[in-house]
């Protein structure tokens, strides 16, 4: 293996000083990072999908001004947006067992992410929905379109285009937020990095791999979103 042969022999010089990169370490623990990345992606994706569902539901409740539910949604949004994810996770992981509800780390991660993301998604969806003017609804209704047709054919396509950039930003934000999962003993990327630093003191390598792992996960998503957004904007103008 080329990497193995090079290990310990290569020095990368930086202006701040000399850092020795231990390739043997990197190679040895890459599978651990991959496993952790898989977990991050799985829990992150599940949490984000759930967050989008919660957000859509909340946005519709607010858009249609459903009595009572509307006030509950508002309270939820304030609670969710004004408390840190780590506090929400602690509540789920350490608080709920006191009430007899014991959830696994994975479930806590997913629910926590959905709880946090739901409010952000709700605001983004609602922003899209309310951006469609009343005159659009009235002219669609005047043509004899039924309520659901107005929603599906006129409101959602326009609202979606407006909400998309904010929703994409939320997805990336939430993926990054997964880095606090380690606080509830989820073996995600952050957890693995901390673990390795604690065990081997290879702080540099562990952190380097951590950064590379997050970049490898999130950068492609950012690029894809940017391309999609550009295409969306071209279709509208």
């Amino acid at each position: 293996m080329t990497l193995y042969a090079l290990s310990g022999k290569i020095k990368i010089t930086e202006s701040l000083g000399q850092i020795l990169v231990d390739f043997e370490f990197i190679e040895k623990f890459t599978p651990m990072y991959l496993e952790a990345a898989r977990l991050t992606v799985l829990i992150g994706a599940a949490g984000i999908v759930l967050a989008a569902a919660v957000g859509l539901l909340c946005a519709l409740v607010k858009y249609y001004r459903v009595p009572v539910a509307r006030q509950i949604v508002s309270a939820y949004i304030e609670l969710s947006r004004n408390t840190p994810l780590i506090v929400q996770l602690f509540f789920l992981y350490f608080g709920l067992p006191k009430a007899g509800i014991r959830l696994s780390s994975e479930v806590c991660g997913i629910i926590g992410l959905a709880f946090l993301g739901g409010s952000y998604m709700a605001e983004s969806f609602l922003g899209g929905l309310t951006s469609v003017g009343k005159i659009q609804l009235e002219s669609a209704e005047s043509l004899g379109l039924r309520r659901h047709q107005v929603m599906n054919l006129i409101v959602i396509p326009q609202a979606g285009a407006v909400a998309a950039p904010a929703v994409c930003a939320n997805v990336i934000f939430l993926l990054k937020e997964t880095s606090v999962f380690s606080a509830v003993s989820l073996a995600d990327l952050m957890y693995v990095a901390k673990d390795l630093i604690g065990m081997y003191y290879n702080t540099g390598e562990a952190l380097l791999m951590l950064v590379v792992a997050y970049l490898a996960l999130i950068l492609p998503i950012s690029v894809i979103f940017a391309i999609l957004e550009r295409r969306l904007r071209r279709g509208r103008s």
């Binding site: 005159i135 659009q136 009235e138 002219s139 669609a140 209704e141 005047s142 043509l143 004899g144 379109l145 039924r146 006129i154 396509p157 326009q158 285009a161 279709g235 509208r236």
Partner: peptide, 20 residues
């Protein structure tokens, strides 16, 4: 109402075409 509206055409002051 939606049935009756099919028989009534309406054009508004503000340009209200569907932009998408």
């Amino acid at each position: 109402l939606y049935k009756i509206r099919q028989k009534i055409g309406m054009v508004f002051q503000s340009y209200d075409l569907f932009p998408h």
